[in-house]
Design a protein around this nucleic acid. Sequence first.
DNA 1: TACCGTACTTAGAAAAACGTAT
DNA 2: ATACGTTTTTCTAAGTACGGTA
Length: 759
Amino acid sequence: MSGDHSHNDDRIDCGSRVNDSHKHKDKYKDKEHKHKDHKKDKEREKSKHGSSDHKDSSDKKHRDKEREKMKHKDGSTDKHKHKDKEKRKEEKMKSIDGKIKKEKENGFASPPHMKSEPEDDFYHSPKHEKSLKRERDDDNDSEFKPKKIKTENDKKAKKRKQQDDDDEDIKPKKTKNKKGEVTDGKKKGKKEPEEKWKWWEEERYTDGSKWRFLEHKGPVFAPPYEPVPSNVKFYYDGKHMRLSPQAEEVATFFAKMLDHDYTTKDIFRKNFFKDWRKEMTSEEKATITDLKKCNFAEMNEYFKAQSEARKAMSKEEKLKIKEENERILQEYGFCIMDNHKERIANFRIEPPGLFRGRGDHPKMGMLKRRIRPEDIIINCSKDSKHPKPPPGTKWKEVRHDNKVTWLVSWTENIQGSIKYIMLNPSSRIKGEKDWQKYETARRLKSCVDRLRAQYRDDWKSKEMRIRQRAVALYFIDKLALRAGNEKEEGETADTVGCCSLRVEHIKLYPEKDGQEYVVEFDFLGKDSIRYYNKVPVEKRVYKNLQLFMENKEPDDDLFDRLNTSILNKHLQELMDGLTAKVFRTYNASITLQQQLKELTSPDENIPAKILSYNRANRAVAILCNHQRAPPKTFEKSMQNLQTKIDAKKDQLSDARRELKSAKADAKVRRDEKSKKAVETKKKAVQRIEEQLMKLEVQATDREENKQIALGTSKLNYLDPRISVAWCKKWGIPIEKIYNKTQREKFAWAIDMADEDFEF
DNA sequence: TACCGTACTTAGAAAAACGTAT
DNA sequence: ATACGTTTTTCTAAGTACGGTA
């Protein structure tokens, strides 16, 4: 039920947004084919057109739908071709953002800047400046050194140092020992207060390399298939049928999902059945010709029973499993990268199963095949102990590419894309990048006014492509839309972002709900999450949209002369390191900061402040359209809360009644005792009222959060230093905001931001 | 400049772990 | 102890972006 996103049905409005993607999907489903054909048309058309229109039409594949339109477009474009060039030059000139091209070449768009970036100095307190500058030679090593590999590691370290020294043009310096305070740190699960490595106080590589030394144990493979016991039967057309192990394994994948909505979907069933048949013996293939006649019920029950049994295991058994998992984690869950032991994010190879694409995915149900050592590419340093493939097997390849961060990769069979094993977010390599991301966003902050002025100006451009670019950018900025790369037709669900919006995704209203020039957005974005929003826009934008939509079919691209690559190229010229997604980061972070300022009341207590924080967080989540399916238990927990509220209400009216009668009583008796009784009852009423209010606030809060996911923005869009600074400023323990994992990921921010950090 | 492959970030669901009430 | 609800962790799909190539 979740994978198919039909739950979107129930998603409610966030503000003016309504969620209802299921209906939408249906809508799009109808269109799918049409759209497809259409694109083909476009393609065909494209090749027909000669060089004269290459400028326009080749910009974007599947653009030009009708020749008529083409003429229209071409006309305007050709006319302004040279102008265009001029403009570009101008733009280039303008972009004297003092950026260092060199860094770009290095693949470090901005982080290494730390040093050279004026903004940094500007924003950081002196204390931090220091760390930013990375007093490099500060002999500071010490950290981890797990006992086991200690010596070996030391050797390696030396080796590495040596290397570095030999490499002239490699700046990064290696960690050395600071003050000789050798921590005996081990990850060994022991509670030893391991000295944390502050990678953020060290220099970064500026040559585009990601590491000097990398050693790991390779991936953990999925456990081999265990056939179901023979008493667990599969029936075809009512008759028991014994399946070959291969066919049986795939059957179990389906059987396990019987309760899932996926198995009711035609595409899923069709894809599954097709792939399942490929695994069958010829006899099986001959017999099993109709999925509807397959009865997996016993298998399904068996797996349910298994998981019940697992739950019911004794403490000891559970502990045993836990320990075994811990062992595997210790062995495979870490790697050594440049002197430090770092946690690997996903060291387990994805097990085989049925592909669970999101939304209306054309490939859902396909068999995701088992990954074998022969599929695996290992990446590690030459001078490391290479991981060993399981006995009797070989790796596909072992390479030593320090320009990338992954340790293991393989090609997945559904989309043919590459999957990677990489490090944990707490690792240096991820952390640096994350930090860098926020620094880029902060640089945008310092020039966003200029940029906004520019795109507003471009709304008036004589060139269509510039207007489109400017309007798209406006959407990205104002609405935090994603860039919207084009996607391969038929390979994925039909979802869009800004540049790939189609005419059918917006509606224009000259006047709506008392507002002028309203644009109604309604489309499926990433993960087929519906984006629905009504926004009043500037008249010029409105007029431009009308122009863009002229003579187009609903399934034509709105921005037919724009794609993400054009847009990003433009952005790059405006600011070094600027891409469409930086706007999301920037707008998310700046919104948090501003909302925190607005919502935090100094004299409120901690819970109230935290509520404010969550509200600020929620504002960002709404901006970024981060939704979730209402938790399964939502209704129930809401009900429970409501029961509590009702009970409270009853209690309150009881208390009130008592108060009333006490008052009456007092009136009659007119003695001290009864007066006191009245006071007591009054107090009781007040207390209960308060409690009731609290509960109601809690309910509101929960309700507000029903389909809003705060996690994504917290983890990916909000500069953690804003939160850290806020906590410090108001004396809120950081644990109230970030859990353990989050604190690990944001260790750099927690360490470096003080209360006056400004994004 | 379209196109493709690659690398890496972002995303919500599902599973597992945890805490608490019964 | 068990059931139950909540929080955290895991999982992997789905994006963005970019560079090389023809």
